[in-house]
Design a protein around this nucleic acid. Structure first.
Length: 257
DNA sequence: CCGGATGTTCACCT
DNA sequence: GAGGTGAACATCCG
C-alpha cells in the first residue's frame, strides 16, 4: 500500500543517490520496465548521473542528466538503497524480502537501488508524464477540492482516489480522511454541502503531515479497525464494510453521513 | 484445494 | 466525457 506518504519516504531514500553515475541496470522482470522497455532504458540512461529526485502523488521521479526515470510501486513495491530498506514492513505485502521478487535495480558507481515487488503491480517508466496526474495531494486545500467536486455524481471516495483528479491518496488514506471529516464515502461529490467539502479540503494536508510523522498511511486511527467486528474509535459503533468506488471501504454509519 | 480478499492501474464498457 | 467494472498481479487465509 505505498500511498503518497510511503512514496515520500521512498523518495527521501532514493535522494541518497544524487550525484551518482548509473553504470548498469539489473532487470529481473522485463515487463516491469513498462514504457521504453529494457533496451531503450539502458540506451538512454547508462552513463547518466542523478541530479535530483522528485515526487508527484505516488510517482517517484529520479531526475538524471539524461532525463527522468519514474518509479511506481503499486501496492507491494519496496525499495532498498545501498542495501537498506526505508520501510521494512508493508501492509498487504509479505514482511520478508525475497530476492526472487527483485524486479529492477540500478547499479551506480557507488551503491545500488533495488525495487522488490511481489505482485508486480509497480513499474518503471522513462519520462513519466506528470501532467496526466492531478495536483499533488500534499498541497490540496478546500478551494481546489471544491472545484474538483463540481457537480460530479460519482462518490466522493472515487474522486479522492482518482489520480487524475488528485494525485497521491490511496484507499487507506481516503477512508481515514472521510472518517475524520464525518462524510460517508458513497455520497456524490457534487452533492456535498459547501461546509462538508471545505472540511475535507482543509483536512488533507494536516492528515498527511500527521500520518507522515506517525510513520505512514497505516497509522490512521481507524485503520486497525478495518476488519469484521471492527469498531469506530470515536463512538464504538460497528464499522460498516462495503465496496465503494470499486474498493474495500470501511466507515462508521453513526457519525459519517 | 478453492474462493475471496487485498490496493493500484489500466483497458474496456455503458 | 463521466462513471462503473473487471483484469492483472501473488500470496495468504479460512
Amino acid at each position: 500500500m505505498p500511498e503518497i506518504l510511503e512514496a515520500e519516504i521512498y523518495r527521501i531514500a532514493v535522494d541518497e543517490t544524487v550525484g551518482r553515475r548509473i553504470e548498469s541496470f539489473q532487470i529481473g522482470d522485463a515487463a516491469y520496465v513498462r514504457d521504453p522497455g529494457p533496451d531503450a532504458l539502458v540506451e538512454q540512461f547508462v552513463g547518466s548521473a542523478v541530479r535530483a529526485t522528485a515526487r508527484h502523488g505516488k510517482l517517484v521521479i529520479v531526475e538524471t542528466t539524461a532525463g527522468d526515470i519514474g518509479l511506481r510501486f503499486g501496492m507491494t513495491g519496496k525499495v532498498r538503497v545501498d542495501g537498506l530498506a526505508p520501510i521494512d514492513a508493508l501492509e498487504y505485502a509479505p514482511s520478508t524480502w525475497n530476492d526472487d521478487w527483485n524486479r529492477f535495480a540500478v547499479d551506480f558507481d557507488t551503491g545500488s537501488l533495488v525495487i522488490n515487488d511481489v505482485r508486480r503491480l509497480g513499474s518503471v517508466e522513462a519520462e513519466p508524464d506528470r501532467d496526466s496526474l492531478g495536483p499533488d495531494a500534499w498541497g490540496i486545500g478546500p478551494t481546489e477540492l471544491a472545484a474538483l467536486c463540481g457537480r460530479g455524481r460519482g462518490a466522493i471516495k472515487s474522486l479522492l482516489l482518482n489520480q487524475k483528479k488528485i494525485a497521491g491518496l490511496g484507499n487507506l488514506l481516503v477512508d481515514e480522511l472521510l472518517w475524520r471529516t464525518s462524510v460517508a464515502p458513497h455520497r456524490p461529490a457534487g452533492e456535498l454541502t459547501a461546509h462538508e467539502t471545505r472540511r475535507i479540503g482543509e483536512q488533507i494536508v494536516p492528515l498527511l503531515d500527521e500520518l507522515f510523522a506517525a510513520g505512514g498511511s497505516h497509522c490512521g486511527a481507524h485503520v486497525p479497525e478495518r476488519h469484521v467486528d471492527g469498531r469506530c474509535p470515536v463512538d464504538n459503533q460497528a464499522l460498516v464494510h462495503a465496496t465503494v468506488g470499486g474498493r474495500s471501504t470501511w466507515w462508521c454509519r453513526e457519525h459519517q453521513s
